Structures are given as structure tokens and as C-alpha cells.
Simulated scan of single mutants.
Amino acid sequence: MKLHRIQEELLALLKRSQNNPLTIRGLQDELGLSSTSVVAHHIKQLEKKGLLKRDPANPRNYSVTGDEDGVRITYLPLYGLAQCGPKGSILDGNPLDKIAISSELIRFPMNEMFLVKARGDSMLPRISNGDIVFARQTRTADNGEVVVCVNDGEALIKKYQKDKQQVVLSSLNSEKYAPFTAAADFRVEGVVKGVFSYKF
């Protein structure tokens, strides 16, 4: 893909500064450009070309897609399971890290994907403490799916079940953790599509 010289330099700078994102003004200064509007223009062009994904709620949170040794790579933010506040989203916070993922491994658009670091033992044996969970952003889920959700201000990974009256959230480690009814602020953030474990 042919890029404008400024876009090439901007993309390289965005890659280098992913763990400490620069402001638009900072990008302008680093690239020696005449104005922030020039930076904004080229950022939009990179987004249109599918090389950059920014979080609308937090523009300094972004993912860069590129080619490394012929493999198309996307750098995705990794979030922790944390308190989100009454109207907060797990995706509003600052990522713990950026992780390079081969785009060929994902069967849906990369801009719909996010990563979560699992916590605790409630989803054993499928998901262990510290595992990286791959989720597809969505506000809905089917019965029986495992979801990343917000419930009572807390980000969770749970099995989803809905009937006409209520949503019930349950753990896969059912001998230790009982199912419970979702709170008034419950909402789905994404459906779990895969798990990467560090265990060997």
C-alpha cells in the first residue's frame, strides 16, 4: 500500500509511542508539521486505509496495523478487569499493554476486537487467572455465550443466560461460585472468541 511520506513517518511514530501515546500537538512537534490539523488529516487517512484504529472515547488509545516479515500485524490494547463506575466501560480506561496479533488469526474485523487479562478462578477450566481473553465488541449476546460485561460497576467475564424476566450470570467453576442475577447497570461489552494461556 502506497503511503504519503508524512503518513509513513506518522505510522512509525505511532508504533514507537504506543505505550506512551503522544497528543496531537506532540505528534506535530515530533514530525515538524505546520499545524495539528495536518496531523489530524493524516490520522484520518490512516484510519480509512485500515492501518490505524482509535477509540472514539479515548483518542490516545489506538491500535496500529502493519506488516512484519510479510505477516499483517495489528497491535491491540490489553485491558484489565477493573472497576468501571456507574456508567463506565472497560474500554474507557488505560490499557495495561499493547499486544501484536496476526490479522490472519481473526475471523472478524480487527477493529471489533479487544483483549482482556483474566482475573481469578471463576471461569476455570476454560479461563485461568492471567489468561489473555480475545473478545468481539458487541452489546448483545446469545444464551450460553461467555461474555465480557459490566455488572454493578465491575468488569467481569461470565456465562450469559437471559429469559423474559432477567439476565443470569454464572461461572464455569460452578462448584465454587453460584449463579447470580445481573444488576440494573448490567451490559455486555463483548463476546469471548478465544483464550490465550501462558501455561505450557
Rank of each mutant, 00 (worst) to 15 (best):
F108Q: 06
R107D: 15
V147G: 04
K117P: 03
T138Y: 11
K117L: 10
V146S: 00
M113C: 14
T140R: 10
G130Q: 06
L124W: 11
M113T: 14
S102D: 13
V133R: 01
A135Y: 00
A135K: 01
A135P: 05
L115D: 03
F114K: 07
S122W: 10
A141L: 09
E145R: 01
R119F: 07
M110T: 07
G120M: 03
I101G: 01
L105I: 13
D142V: 03
L105T: 15
L105E: 12
P109N: 09
V148A: 09
E145I: 00
T138G: 06
K117S: 12
I106N: 08
R136V: 15
A141H: 09
V147E: 04
D121G: 01
D142N: 14
V148Q: 07
V116L: 02
G144V: 02
R136I: 14
S102H: 10
D131E: 08
G130N: 12
R139I: 05
S103W: 01
I106T: 10
E104I: 12
I106F: 12
A100R: 13
S128K: 13
D131W: 11
S102Q: 14
V133Q: 02
D142L: 13
P125H: 00
A135W: 00
V133N: 02
I127R: 01
S128P: 02
V133C: 07
S102N: 14
M123T: 04
M113Q: 11
N143F: 10
L115C: 05
R119A: 13
G144L: 04
M110H: 04
F134C: 10
A100K: 13
K117F: 04
E112L: 07
G130L: 04
V133T: 09
G144W: 07
R139S: 13
A135D: 04
R119P: 01
M113F: 06
G144M: 03
I127K: 01
I99K: 13
I106M: 12
N129S: 14
L105M: 12
L124V: 13
A118F: 09
N111G: 02
S128Y: 14
R126M: 15
G144T: 01
A141R: 09
G130W: 02
F108I: 11
V147D: 05
E145S: 10
S102G: 10
D121L: 01
G144D: 02
Q137L: 09
I99M: 14
I132Y: 01
V147S: 03
P125L: 00
E112A: 03
D131I: 11
S103N: 14
I132N: 03
I101R: 07
R136G: 05
F108K: 09
V148R: 06
L115R: 01
L124F: 12
R119K: 15
I106S: 07
R119M: 10
D142T: 04
M110K: 02
E112V: 00
G144R: 02
I99V: 15
